[in-house]
Amino acid sequence: MSITREAGPAWAIELNKLTVYYNDKLAVRDVDLKIERQKITAFIGPSGCGKSTVLRSINRMNDLIPGARVTGRVMYSGKNLYDTDIDAVEVRRHIGMVFQKPNPFPKSIFDNVAYGPRLLGIRDGKTLKQIVEQSLRASFLWDEVKDDLKKSGLALSGGQQQRLCIARAIAVQPDVILMDEPCSALDPIATQAIEELMLELVRQYTIIIVTHNMQQAQRVADYTAFFNIRKEQETAGNERRWGLLAEHGATEQIFNAPKLEETERYISGEFG
């Protein structure tokens, strides 16, 4: 069965009791979360709280990790993405991803952006050129690279590489873009460029971003989901830890009037 995009529901993605295990180890448990269409949602929380795990579960990137197991549901356009008749390849074409470390292919700038369209079978040079230009313009990179599209993607600076990766992701016209700490390897100026880009992209796309930087969440995100760690003493000296979604709401509310004490302690920098 294939995925048909629906414009209908206000929710782009709905997580339903999403639970992820790595082998026998529980990583994150019972996440219930609705992601609003064409808004930026930020995932924040201390290291090990499972925010990246949840993000990677949304486009089934965790399928690549041996031993990863997901229960619960990820609803997208009326389909549970974990139904057995859904192909992960199709999921990732609708829900694109940008990674923590810029990872352009060791190919030319043009070939990097054209990679996705070519996968889908587009061979026509003119169409490809058009898609590449559109995508590079949309990621604010066109003016910087339009004269040397044949240059290797690796020759760009870190911030340019990350924008190239965003161009590559949007070249297949996804619906949702997942960003896993996209600025953590970048300097402040490059970070600012990416943030501005996100605010532009959100007019067309639904964006979910994992970030360690709370100012970043405040600057760009419409909604913020705070994940935290739960611990349980199994036996003496043997502690079990897993992550869960602690609180979720409009960014302003989370940062100015958090409902939970742990959220307040985290955003005020007491742990993390």
Partner: peptide, 17 residues
């Protein structure tokens, strides 16, 4: 590197691609 494979899968490539 895994990051390159992830980049490819991330834009909807099949395993063989």
């Amino acid at each position: 590197p895994l990051s390159l494979r992830e980049a490819s899968y991330g834009v909807g490539a099949t395993k063989w691609q």
